[in-house]
């Protein structure tokens, strides 16, 4: 009797997952004949949003003029396809110029390079990206193990390796599809593009 119940429950559970899989129809990397051109439908992107929320915060005290995706690409040294190794411990840098002296806190992440659009960083290399806490609200919180596309630029401050941008940042899903991390129109328009194709497209936008 007990065995029968377990069997029925297992079949029901399996059927439920098959149903779920068919409803979402998120293709996996391996199952694609031409992953370079595959793009998810809006429904599939919407279904992924629960796990990869769209961030739209802006700093409380600053006035900002929203840049375009083109601006971000043009200003970045490179676009990395990288894995998040984890948050770094916040650190401080002292700054002094003219009438203003200050010590600011910085937050950020350690990343492992999967691919570097500019071709300077090797696969498996570790980089640290960080930003001043005054603009923390502009950034989504990244989880360890996440894969992302991220615009970065080499910092000119001692003790700070790379600046990074939340605008033009994309989450890469298990199936290898990119969806925008920040709520900006021209980035959202690229939601659901396969990571290889997106990297190529975005890097191709950069004005040389």
């Amino acid at each position: 009797m007990k065995g029968k119940i377990i069997l029925v429950s297992s079949v029901a559970l399996a059927a439920f997952f098959v149903f779920l899989f068919m409803t979402l129809k998120v293709p996996k990397t391996g199952s694609l004949s031409n992953e370079q051109t595959a793009v998810l439908t809006q429904e599939q992107v919407n279904a992924l949003r629960a796990a990869y929320p769209l961030h739209s915060g802006v700093p409380s005290f600053a006035t900002m003029k929203m840049p375009s995706l083109q601006d971000i690409i043009d200003r970045a040294d490179t676009l990395l396809y990288a894995k998040v190794l984890g948050k770094i411990d916040p650190y401080e840098i002292e700054f002094s110029a003219g009438a203003l002296q200050r010590k600011d806190s910085f937050f950020g992440y350690d990343l492992e390079v999967i691919r570097d659009s500019a071709g300077k960083l090797k696969k498996g290399a570790n980089v640290t990206v960080s930003a001043n806490a005054v603009i923390k609200e502009l950034y989504p919180s990244l989880r360890k193990g996440m894969e992302i596309i991220i615009p970065i630029s080499k910092s000119s401050f001692k003790g700070k390796q790379y600046d990074f941008s939340s605008l033009g940042m994309f989450y890469v899903t298990d199936g290898g599809y990119a969806i925008s991390a920040y709520n900006m129109e021209d980035a959202i328009a690229k939601d659901g593009t396969h990571v290889s194709l997106l990297l190529k497209t975005l890097w191709g936008m950069k004005k040389k």
């Binding site: 700093p59 005290f61 600053a62 006035t63 900002m64 003029k65 929203m66 840049p67 601006d71 971000i72 200003r75 970045a76 840098i93 700054f95 110029a97 203003l100 600011d104 930003a131 001043n132 005054v134 603009i135 502009l138 615009p151 630029s153 080499k154 910092s155 000119s156 401050f157 600046d163 990074f164 941008s165």
Partner: peptide, 19 residues
């Protein structure tokens, strides 16, 4: 340099003011 310190190389031209 202060503007870069605050907003980084990517965002330094997007921030107009800070209180």
């Amino acid at each position: 340099t202060l503007w870069e310190f605050l907003f980084g190389l990517i965002f330094q031209y997007d921030f107009l003011g800070l209180a």
